[in-house]
Design a protein around this nucleic acid. Structure first.
Length: 240
DNA sequence: CGGATTTGACCGGCGC
DNA sequence: GCGCCGGTCAAATCCG
């Protein structure tokens, strides 16, 4: 199910509790020297909240049943989807949730502060103009930012940007981030009442590496068929 | 024609 | 307070 190219998951890392990233390696991949990017965390600067990452992150991080999409079409998740194995720990599984409850503590505190100021701002608008499109947009955005979901990210060496994780995603934005030559893409789960998002970008230091960041937990099952699921599960073995 | 993607604009957060 | 930057929106565009 991997592309016939040289694409393969050679190395991947996770960010838990916003700040901690560890890596795992596929069992078939010969590990050479320690990679310099092991400490990489895209949230190290921007989301330095909480800071209570587990002392041994490997104890609380999930396995990653990632498969790479064949072809790298910009149409993501619309076809040839595969369901992850049920015994695989995804961040949106219960096991991940239990193991990572701490990760949302700092965020909750952060959100409370944000909400206080937001509420006062909205309340201060007394004019009828507060119902303008701009005001409505602001309201929506603030409501949207009310809840920050736990996130994790990992790194894969891949020629394709979009990793097939079993869910259907719709792209809603793309942004060129400072000091990077590759744009960051923003995806949202297409399922109704599912607010999971993911970001995909290439590592500036090594464009062969794809950084995928998930935010939130799926409130539904993947939409892939069983055959692919079993096949994928038999091909990939992760260890920490 | 409907759904997905693209892309410029807008907004809030944060550092200085 | 101001400016920069990341994240999101939504109209335009693309594509099957």
């Amino acid at each position: 199910m991997f592309p016939s190219t040289t694409s393969a998951v050679l190395n991947q890392g996770l960010v838990a509790s916003q700040e901690t990233m560890v890596t795992s390696h596929m069992s078939f991949t010969p590990q050479t020297s320690p990679l310099p990017h092991l400490a990489f965390s895209p949230y190290g600067l921007q989301h330095s909240l909480g800071g209570d990452a587990p002392s041994n992150p490997r104890e609380s991080l999930p396995s990653l049943p990632l498969r790479l999409r064949v072809g790298g079409s910009p149409q993501i998740g619309a076809s040839a989807v595969q369901r992850p194995s049920s015994n695989i720990l995804w961040p949106w599984n219960e096991e991940w949730s239990l193991n990572n409850k701490r990760s949302s503590v700092g965020e909750a505190h952060h959100n409370n502060n944000r909400n206080n100021s937001s509420t006062s701002n909205i309340g201060s608008s007394s004019s009828i103009n507060c119902l303008s499109v701009s005001a409505l947009r602001m309201k929506k955005m603030k409501a949207r930012r009310k809840v920050r979901e736990p996130r994790f990210c990992f790194k894969t060496m891949s020629e394709v940007d979009v990793l097939d994780d079993g869910y259907k995603w719709r792209k809603y934005g793309q942004k060129v981030v400072k000091n990077t030559q590759h744009p960051r893409s923003y995806y949202r789960c297409t399922q109704d009442n599912c607010r999971v998002k993911k970001r995909v970008e290439r590592l500036a230091e090594d464009p062969r590496m794809v950084i995928t960041t998930y935010e939130g937990r799926h409130a539904h099952s993947p939409s892939h068929d069983e055959d692919d699921q079993n096949r994928a599960a038999s091909q990939i073995n992760f260890f920490w």
